[in-house]
């Protein structure tokens, strides 16, 4: 205290005092504006407050039975706080939610809500907590993607479940990885960022958005070019090919043996 009293007549004391005052007022102002922004950030980016309100109404009417009145989750359905708009856009946009029936996993069906209602639901769920957003169009433009690089990434990260040709495959206890043929670019992207059902999450730190675009470009290229000849048999590899050769092939062999050994009339 004594030291301070001695130094108050120091030539720089005025400067120090001025700095202190500026810092205080500046800091207070900054804190005040952050509080304001924090209140505003409840409104997710790209959505209007009307959409959030409308989405809440739809949510209470259609989803709250399983996910709870405030999306906090119940025994029948998980909490949706922080799952993000991408998750809603995928689950509702592909018809998986609302669920058709209880089972090992939610099945795809014609969507129950239109684009506008899906966006409203997404806005509401996104307002509950930050989560993956609906991807920007830039990352869905397959013309900008590199299909061959995407193919390598697909084979390392996706092919073990979804099949090297993206035709899907079986998992444990009735669950399965669905076919990726004919799935919209947006939904493929959202599945990677949110990890629906038992699919692992491939966030942007693992597969950056540009790489996701490459993977989508690979899938779309594969889908458009078709097979290089012969029957694809669902692209299921040895399963369907083996079944065909064991039934049709063996029947042909037995038929030709009967013909070879029969007497001519």
């Amino acid at each position: 205290m004594k030291a301070l009293t001695q130094k108050r007549r120091h030539p720089f004391a005025f400067v120090a005092l001025l700095l202190l005052g500026l810092l205080l007022t500046g800091g207070l102002y900054a804190a005040a504006t952050t509080v304001n922004e924090a209140q505003a950030s409840n409104l997710p980016e790209g959505y209007t407050s009307e959409q959030v309100e409308e989405g809440e109404r739809l949510f209470v009417a259609n989803c709250a039975t399983c996910h709870g009145m405030n999306a906090e989750g119940t025994d029948a359905g998980p909490s949706l706080v922080g799952v993000g708009a991408a998750s809603v856009d995928f689950q509702v946009g592909t018809g998986r939610m609302p669920m058709q029936m209880q089972g090992p996993q939610a099945q795809q069906k014609p969507p129950q809500f239109n684009e506008e209602q899906t966006a409203q639901l997404a806005a509401y769920v996104a307002s509950l907590g930050t989560g993956p957003a609906v991807p920007e169009d830039e990352y869905l433009d397959v013309d900008q993607g590199d299909p061959s690089r995407g193919g390598e990434l697909f084979r390392i990260n996706c092919a073990m479940c979804h099949n090297a040709a993206g035709a899907g495959g079986a998992l444990t206890e009735g669950k399965f990885a669905p076919s990726l043929h004919g799935v919209e670019e947006r939904h493929i992207y959202e599945a990677m960022t949110t990890g629906p059902q038992n699919m692992p999450v491939f966030n942007d730190a693992n597969i950056p958005p540009e790489d996701k675009r490459d993977i989508i470009a690979f899938l779309k290229t594969y889908e458009n070019q078709g097979t290089p000849g012969g029957f694809s048999l669902g692209f299921l590899g040895p399963v369907s090919e083996g079944l065909l050769i064991w039934t049709l092939g063996l029947a042909l062999l037995i038929g030709s043996m009967v013909w070879l050994t029969s007497r001519s009339s």
Binding site: I156, N157, G195, P200, V201, N203, A205, N206
Partner: peptide, 11 residues
């Protein structure tokens, strides 16, 4: 460690 969110899988 922060690159992996809960539920992530990485090769």
């Amino acid at each position: 460690a922060s690159d992996l969110t809960v539920g992530s899988a990485m090769h």
